[in-house]
Simulated assay, not measured.
Amino acid sequence: MDEILEGRYAGILADVDPSFLNHEVAKERKLSTPFLVNGPRDADARRIMVIGREFGGRGWYVKNAGDNPRAYVSKALIQHQTFFDKCMAQKESDKGVTFFNFMRALAKKVGSGGLIYSNLLCFDSVGKAPNKSKYFAQIKDLSKRLLDAQLEHFKPDVIIFANGMSTVGVRREFFPISGERKVCVSRRHWQETGISKDQLWEFELLDKYLCYRIQHPATIRGRSDAEVARRQLLEVLGETSPAVQLLLAASAGAGGAAIAARK
């Protein structure tokens, strides 16, 4: 395990009400315990961090860790890696285009060694976003602190926001796209190729992270607009390095869509 990462997480959780680490209390509140994210398996690989909507499993409970943040972190990171590896090893579902179908497609295109599986919010509520929980303010605060720690620690080459519409307000609160606190710039889209900007959008975050925003990849087959957008993103990531994409976006400005159309 990464001792520096464990220390970062433990320091953050030390400031949290310890009851949030208790899986029995979490069940009573219809919440999971905090979701903690492992880094890529290959430290030298191109790091692509995918930030989803909530957990890939129904109810994320780290059991019997007590109220010791260090013990909780250790168990949570093992659980995250085990769950992620299991999902990545599965075959594509015939029922629809799920989050992990997208992750497996991404692994085929760019390799799996540098993939980082994260979530916008670090709690779920019985498999769904916890927006209606009375603890939502605390959930948002902890989620943002954990996300900031992940970005600083992992230093991803690419970030894909795939949290969908149910938490779009939270994403914009965490990372404003307008106003004095705006941290998202150099946006471009693929409208000239027939892809709605609501389906695929490129931007820089904090002047250093190349990002893409897509809809949450749980769309039922037949939603061709979402599928086309995902395929376009996979092609972009497979054909062009992050450094080149960042340079193109910065130099293209408002004409970025024209560059995208030529790809």
Rank of each mutant, 00 (worst) to 15 (best):
K155D: 14
R70A: 14
I195S: 04
R221T: 09
L120G: 07
P69I: 00
S251F: 14
E54D: 10
L210W: 05
V185T: 13
A137C: 07
K95A: 13
I116E: 10
N22H: 12
A105Y: 04
S196E: 07
I214E: 06
V16P: 07
L210Q: 09
L13E: 02
K95Y: 10
L77Y: 05
C211I: 01
D42H: 06
V25L: 07
S143Q: 00
E227A: 11
A71P: 02
A43Y: 02
R213I: 03
K182M: 13
P130I: 08
N163D: 09
Q191A: 15
E192S: 15
Q215A: 13
L205S: 11
E24K: 11
Q81F: 00
K30C: 08
E24H: 11
F174H: 01
F161R: 01
F99D: 06
N68S: 14
Q138E: 15
S143F: 00
I139T: 00
E239N: 15
R223G: 00
N163Q: 14
R145K: 11
S118H: 10
T167N: 01
S125P: 02
G56C: 08
R53G: 04
L147Y: 03
H153P: 04
R47Y: 03
I48A: 03
Y72T: 03
D157S: 12
V73D: 04
V228P: 02
Y117S: 10
E239G: 09
Q150F: 02
A258T: 12
N119R: 08
E152Y: 01
Q191H: 11
D157K: 03
L121Q: 05
V37M: 06
L31A: 02
L247Y: 11
T98W: 13
I259A: 13
Y117T: 07
V110F: 09
L21N: 07
D42F: 03
E202G: 11
N101V: 08
A258L: 15
K91D: 11
I4R: 07
G66Q: 03
D198N: 15
E227V: 07
E92Y: 08
